[in-house]
Design a protein around this nucleic acid. Structure first.
Lengths: 163, 163
DNA sequence: CAGCTGACTTACGATTACATAAGTCAGCTG
DNA sequence: CAGCTGACTTATGTAATCGTAAGTCAGCTG
C-alpha cells in the first residue's frame, strides 16, 4: 500500500470530481429524483408525488438537474391533449445509474428492515439480481483493501500552508 | 422490458433503501467526509481542513456518521502525547466504497476540466485503474438498458389514493 | 503548575432547503 | 368561450445547514 496520507495535505481538492458531482446532486431530493427517473418517471407531478416532496421543491431540483444536463425537457403529446413536456434522462443522466445502484445496494445491505428490500434490479436476459462491483481495467475484481489512491493528471499540489 | 411504470403508483417507498441511505449521507459534507475517510484521514482537524468545512460542521457530520455506524471512534496514542480518538471506517463504512468510487467515476467522466481527474484509484496488484461496473449474479456485465426493476420481498403496495 | 495543543462545544447570524397555500397560464373540451 | 387540467410559479414561514468567532477541557511539556 502506497503511503498516500503523507502527501495528502499537499493536494488541492479544488478540482475534486466528487465535490463537483455533489454540487449537482449533493442533496437528498436531487438523488431521489434521479431514483425516480430510473424507475421510469417522466412527468412533473409524478416526480413530486412519488418522491414525496412539494411541487416547488420538485420544480427547483428538476430545473437544476436539467441545467446540469442529467435530464432534458422533451415535448410529448397524448391523443386529445395539448403538447406537454417530460423530463427524460440524457446520456449523462443514464450514466449516473451506477451511483443509484450502489446507493440502493448499500441500503439493502445495511439499512433495510426484516422484510428485505422493496425493489430488486434484475438482468434483462437472465433475471439475476444486478450489483455494482469494483473491477480494474485488467479485468480483476477488486475487493476492499486491494486498491490505492494515485495522483491523476489533474492533481494540483499546493504548499501545506496555503488555502 | 417489463412495464413497471404501470404499477409504480401502487408502490410505497416508505422502506426505500435509497431514501434510508440518504437519511444518513444525504448531504454534501457527509459524503465528502466519507471520501476523506477512504483517502485515509482519521483525525478531527484533518477532516475539517481537508474537506474544507468548519469545525462545527465536521463535528456534526462525524457524530452522525459515528452514530449511524459508518465510522467508529478508536483511541490511539502517539509517543509523548496523550490518548486521543481517531475516526475509523467500520465494515459498514468500508462497504460504502462502491458509492464513493461511482460518484468519482461519474465526476471524472462528466464534471472534470481539461486537466483530467486529480486522483485515480488503482488495483493494488496490477496498477490498473479501478471502476465501478454493474454485473448480475450470473456473472454477466449489465450495460445500460439491459436491466429492469422487479418487486422485492419488502415491497408494500398501497391503494393509489392513500398517502 | 503554567502553557500549549488537539479536539472539540457554544453562540450567533447567514444561507439553503424544504412545506403549505395560493395563484398563473396555456390550450383542449364541451 | 367558460371550465378543466397539467405544469408550473409566487409568497411566506420553518427547519436544517453552514460559517465565524470564541470558549472549554484534558493532559503532556517545560
Amino acid at each position: 500500500m502506497k503511503d498516500l496520507l503523507e502527501e495528502r495535505d499537499a493536494w488541492s481538492m479544488a478540482n475534486c470530481s466528487i465535490a463537483r458531482t455533489l454540487e449537482i446532486v449533493g442533496n437528498r431530493t436531487a438523488l431521489l429524483i434521479m431514483r425516480e427517473a430510473f424507475f421510469g418517471t417522466r412527468r412533473f407531478d409524478d416526480f413530486a408525488k412519488r418522491v414525496g416532496i412539494s411541487e416547488p421543491a420538485a420544480a427547483a431540483r428538476l430545473k437544476e438537474l436539467t441545467a446540469a444536463g442529467l435530464l432534458e425537457r422533451v415535448p410529448y403529446q397524448e391523443p386529445g391533449q395539448r403538447t406537454r413536456y417530460a423530463y427524460q434522462l440524457t446520456q449523462k443522466g443514464r450514466d449516473f445509474r451506477t451511483v443509484i445502484v450502489a446507493l440502493r445496494q448499500w441500503g439493502d445491505a445495511w439499512a433495510t428492515d426484516e422484510q428485505g428490500p422493496p425493489v430488486v434490479v434484475r438482468h434483462e436476459h437472465c433475471g439475476a439480481p444486478v450489483h455494482a462491483v469494483l473491477r480494474c481495467d485488467d479485468g480483476h475484481d477488486v475487493p476492499i483493501g486491494d486498491s490505492f489512491v494515485d495522483a491523476g493528471p489533474g492533481l494540483i499540489r499546493v504548499s501545506p500552508d496555503s488555502p
